[in-house]
Design a protein around this nucleic acid. Structure first.
Length: 635
DNA sequence: CTAGGGTTAG
């Protein structure tokens, strides 16, 4: 549920100075505020706050500390902090409870800075903090990594002798662990009951956040009685550090131990599936959700949409999306990004429009998805409209990734000079990625002079990684500038930068088969290469001319070998053709982008073999069917 | 105490 600012700004009833003529008869109905409290506790809607407040005033209860506390708490609970603050300012002598009620609201609303300030204001007023406010303020400190403030609170804890309170211990651990002060965290941990699962979970997740997985695992293994949350924290640690396979192994172990997964666990596992492109397992998790009353909330649903989209089954993503009842911003963002990834740009824009109609407020990531969709299909006008509406309608300042999409959008359709001007006029400094996008478009559209200008910027920037070098070298080769191409490669070698090897994988019978460039390690290599020969013959009959011949003149011997080697996706496809039943869809995952030569080749393979071939690229999907590709050769 | 969405380049 999303509330606009307008909904927060509810009218404020007259203050106590103007209520002196309130009816004495009516106020008797709320004797001592006793009847008011249940009303304040049961209220569920922001709109009713002013009426309740008016009742409090009429009943002459606006000096009753308990009633005021409940009032503040109600405002905090309903995220109406403006109103809460105004009530707070009317309190002559606020006590710890009043401060706590406000702090609660700030912590829940993710404005921890205000919570911390408020706490120190309270201490400044000589009000003695109790264990509960301290737990709240420590949570606030932990969430914004405010270590010095947190340490100061810790000193107060020791002075007030509250160090043995369990909630405080947990928060102190969280604070120190999140701020990477693991020695301090373990000191506090040492004081907790032996192998406390909750305390261990805090450590496990903070250690993983800092990439210290082995230490996290050691803490995890030391816990005797692990609950679902503890297991999930460790699984999540693996997923967030890119170790999806380790996460899945641990998940299987969790099931062997008969610990039931909950919504959180399922979300983590789905995220692991997305990383791996593991469609079958993802489907299994989906059916598990259905059978084991795991609630299909917005989190689970969004993770499912994301998983199906990233595993290549956009249709299933759409089914989940359409059937979901609790869609939130993230759900829409996942669907939009998924459609963009599959080149279904117009639908992505439609979902965006539907989201706005449904009253949801788009976020930065929504725009990343929509603009990305536009650049994948050359929708320049829509792209600019959406880009401009970011700031105008949603007060969102475009970030470098949004500018990146725009430069890419212009450059890919061939409006290179405009793209260049756009990049120079950005409100943020363009990075090497933006220049690379532009350079790549210069190559596609054969614009040498601009390409050289951009190449110079890239070489000077020192931010170049292996991808930039490979791109530069390819650009020079495509313009026939062999010497420059060789120089770039030498430069790259000199700096000790290695090209990331192209690698494609395909899953057959529950087993992942990986192929590198010109790979000859596979046990069925003979059949694979025979199939390739066989296809090459058919392709020639279909009139397919490999583009390589053109590029081969004038390059060094070593380069030649590299250019001649067989791209990994071809090997994966040939293996798929011989290892699966005719008619089976082939799903290939590749770590780099498909080159245009392979792209044209796969189109024909799909046609002559009657197969659907789905290729997951570095950054999008290609669906090959009957001689054409879903990207319309624009990618 | 644990959870979902991420651009551009090779």
């Amino acid at each position: 549920m999303l509330l606009s600012r307008r909904q927060f700004a509810v009218p404020f009833p007259p203050n106590s100075s103007s209520r002196s003529h309130a009816s004495k008869k009516k106020s008797r109905r709320f004797h001592g505020g006793n009847q008011l409290i249940p009303l304040l506790e049961s209220c569920k809607s922001i709109g009713q706050i002013p009426q309740l407040h008016a009742l409090v005033i009429k009943a002459g209860q606006d000096r009753n500390p308990l009633v005021l506390f409940k009032m503040l708490r109600l405002c905090s609970k309903l995220s109406s902090m403006d109103y809460a603050l105004r009530v707070f300012e009317t309190i002559l002598v606020p006590d710890v409870y009043h401060y706590t009620a406000l702090l609660e609201g700030h912590v829940a609303l993710a404005s921890p800075r205000s919570a911390i300030e408020l706490y120190f204001r309270m201490v400044g007023e000589q009000i003695r903090p109790d264990a509960i406010v301290i737990a709240y303020v420590l949570k606030a400190c932990a969430s914004v990594l405010a270590l010095p403030d947190g340490r100061q609170v810790h000193c107060q804890v020791l002075k007030l002798d509250l160090g043995r309170e369990r909630p405080i211990k947990m928060r102190l651990m969280e604070l120190y662990a999140r701020c990477a002060q693991f020695e301090d965290a373990k000191l506090v941990f040492g004081e907790t009951p032996e192998r406390d699962a909750v305390a261990a979970t805090i450590l496990v997740s903070s250690l993983s956040d800092h990439g210290l997985l082995e230490e996290a695992r050691a803490v995890f293994d030391s816990v005797l009685d692990k609950d679902t949350v503890c297991w999930t924290a460790m699984i999540d640690g693996y997923v967030r550090n890119g170790l999806a396979n380790a996460a899945l192994d641990l998940f299987r172990e969790m099931q062997r131990e008969c610990v039931r997964p909950n919504e959180f666990t399922v979300v983590c596992i789905l995220s692991a599936c997305s990383q791996l492109g593991a469609l079958e397992l993802g489907r299994w998790v989906h059916s598990y959700v259905g059978k084991n009353n795991v609630r299909l909330n917005a989190f689970v649903g969004s993770a499912l949409v994301d998983m199906y989209a990233k595993c290549g089954s956009l249709e299933e993503a759409l089914v989940v999306f359409d059937e979901m009842e609790e869609k939130d911003v993230v759900t829409y963002n996942s669907m939009i990004a998924g459609l963009a990834m599959h080149g279904r740009s117009n639908e992505a824009v439609k979902v965006y429009e539907q989201m706005v109609r449904d009253g949801l407020r788009p976020t930065q990531l929504t725009f990343v998805g929509v603009l990305n969709a536009c650049s994948h299909s050359g929708l320049v006008d829509v792209g600019f409209e959406v880009f401009e509406s970011m700031a105008k309608d949603y007060e969102l300042e475009p970030r470098i990734e949004h500018y990146g999409c725009m430069v890419d959008l212009l450059a890919r359709v061939g409006r290179l000079e405009e793209a260049y001007e756009f990049a120079k006029g950005m409100r943020v400094e363009p990075d090497h990625v933006i220049w690379s996008a532009l350079l790549s478009a210069c190559k596609i559209h054969g614009h040498l002079s601009l390409g050289e200008k951009v190449a110079e910027i890239l070489i000077d920037s020192e931010a170049a990684d292996s991808g930039t070098f490979v791109l530069l070298s390819n650009v020079y080769s495509s313009f026939g500038k062999w010497k420059e191409a060789a120089r770039i490669r030498a430069n790259m070698r000199g700096k000790g930068i290695l090209k990331e090897p192209g690698c494609s994988s395909i899953r057959v019978d529950n087993e992942i088969h990986e192929f590198l460039l010109g790979d000859i390690r596979h046990p069925r290599r003979k059949e694979i290469y025979m199939k390739l020969e066989d296809l090459n013959g058919v392709l020639r009959q279909e009139g397919f001319v490999p583009a390589k011949d053109v590029v081969l003149q004038d390059i060094e011997e070593e380069e030649k070998e590299w250019a001649l080697a067989i791209h990994s996706e071809r090997l994966a496809i040939c293996f798929g053709l011989i290892a699966t039943e005719p008619g089976t869809t082939l799903r290939i995952v590749k770590n780099l982008r498909v080159c245009s030569d392979c792209h044209s080749m796969i189109k024909i393979i799909a046609k002559v073999t009657g197969r659907r071939i789905v290729v997951r690229d570095r950054n999008r999907f290609h669906h090959f069917e009957d001689g054409s590709c879903s990207c319309g050769d624009y990618w």
